[in-house]
Simulated scan of single mutants.
Amino acid sequence: MKAAVFYDKNNIRYEERPMPTIGEGEVLLRMEVCGLCGTDIHKVLDETVPETTVLGHEVAGTIVEIGQGVEEFVVGDRVFVAHHVPCFTCHYCQRKLFTLCKQFKETNLEPGGFSEYIRVPALHVKHTMGKLPENVTFEEGALVEPVACCLHGFESMDIRPGDSVLILGAGQIGCLQIQIARHLLAGQIFVSDINPYRLEQSLHFGATAVMNSKTENLQEKVMEWTAGQGVDHVIISAGVSALLTEAMNCVRKGGTILVFAPFREEEIAIPAHRFFMDELKVIGSYSSHPYNYETALQLIQQGVIRVNDMVTHRFPLAQLDEAIHCAHSPNEQALKVLLVP
């Protein structure tokens, strides 16, 4: 079989790999669509994964072989599958902090989503794989995992009808978060980015107002929008550490800041007095967990998440490097980029 294999940021090879063999409780999946995630781009460009890694984890495909003991699925089933599984019994899992579980990061698909065929381990078959309804396409199925990640972040925020939300970053994740915030009856949804195309798309997906932070002052604009009060919730969906300072200057008293995107390991200055005086909450969100997937699938199936409007580019698996360049380039009108065999 063929796979797109990482060697370094300038060397992604489309090469032959051995066909995975499956064991008891496992399935062999033919990849039909795999989404390109911002973390995939980060791992390639910052070279944070070992050579010969096959990335990709937003997977939808067709089951072509089932192992002994698999009863809920049959050959030919159309499915989505996610890549990490918690143990459900450790200190963190008992407190519903599933993504902090030690086993969580140790589990994965083999070899990864950017390959023609994928071995789905038994734990994943049991906990992170689900059938796609007839009216859900493979492209929509590939969005189950990223939507689930957004839902995991929203679990930590008490968004009430009428609340105001500021989303920093209007990429694929920011546009998903706009749609979820609208579904949760947020009163005002403001979006900041430096890409005019993505700001235009934010309005299309339901943002109340947008601003280009390259040409406008974020704090001044937010205070103008909110009559000097600030917003109830800020979601940081771009991996820029300085946005935490910006967020703390824009959130109102008693508000919440969700750090959704990964930051580099660097020190930044923040107005720390606000924690005590204004009772602010700053929380982080990493990945998704098995209890998010059914909700994510329902949001897609019912049209709350408009996947077809989000997909801007499709690349064959042999062109993963071009797909990454497209998704990362500020000159491209790119939102959601998909890979197909």
Rank of each mutant, 00 (worst) to 15 (best):
E47P: 12
F104A: 02
F88Q: 06
A60K: 02
E58P: 09
L97I: 12
V59C: 13
V85P: 01
T48Q: 09
G69V: 06
V54M: 14
F88V: 05
Q94E: 15
I63V: 14
I63Q: 03
L45K: 15
Q94S: 14
F80T: 07
L97W: 04
L97Q: 11
V85H: 00
C101W: 03
T99K: 10
C90P: 02
D46S: 15
V81M: 00
H91E: 15
C90W: 11
R78S: 13
I63A: 10
D46W: 10
V49I: 13
R95C: 00
V85D: 00
L100R: 13
H83A: 09
R78G: 03
G67R: 04
K96P: 08
V70R: 00
A60D: 02
T53Q: 14
C87P: 05
V79F: 05
F104E: 06
T89Y: 06
L97N: 09
Q103W: 02
G67S: 04
E106P: 03
A60Q: 02
G69N: 04
E58N: 08
T52D: 15
K105W: 02
V70M: 01
Q94C: 14
L100Q: 10
Q103L: 06
K102R: 08
Y92A: 15
F98S: 04
V59N: 11
H83K: 04
F88N: 07
F80L: 03
F80Y: 11
G69D: 04
G56L: 14
T89W: 03
P50K: 13
V64Q: 13
H57F: 01
H91D: 13
K105D: 09
V49Y: 02
F98Q: 03
E65P: 07
F98E: 08
R95G: 01
Q94M: 15
D77Q: 12
E106G: 03
C87V: 04
E72S: 10
Q94D: 15
Q94W: 01
C93D: 08
P86L: 04
P50A: 11
L100M: 14
R95D: 15
K102S: 02
D46Y: 14
R95M: 15
E58Q: 11
E71T: 11
Q68W: 10
D77F: 09
G61L: 11
H84S: 04
V64L: 12
F104C: 05
T48M: 06
L97Y: 14
G67L: 10
E58I: 12
P50H: 13
L100P: 00
F98R: 05
Q94A: 10
H83I: 08
C93S: 12
C93R: 03
C93I: 09
E65D: 13
C90H: 12
K105F: 06
K96H: 14
F98L: 10
E65A: 13
H91Y: 15
P86Q: 09
E106C: 03
T89Q: 12
E58C: 07
P50G: 11
V70H: 01
T99C: 05
F88I: 04
Q103M: 08
Y92V: 05
V81L: 01
G69P: 01
I63K: 01
Q68L: 02
P50Y: 12
I63E: 04
Q68R: 04
E51V: 10
T89A: 05
Y92C: 04
V49N: 07
V74T: 13
E47D: 14
E65I: 07
E106H: 09
T53R: 06
F73N: 06
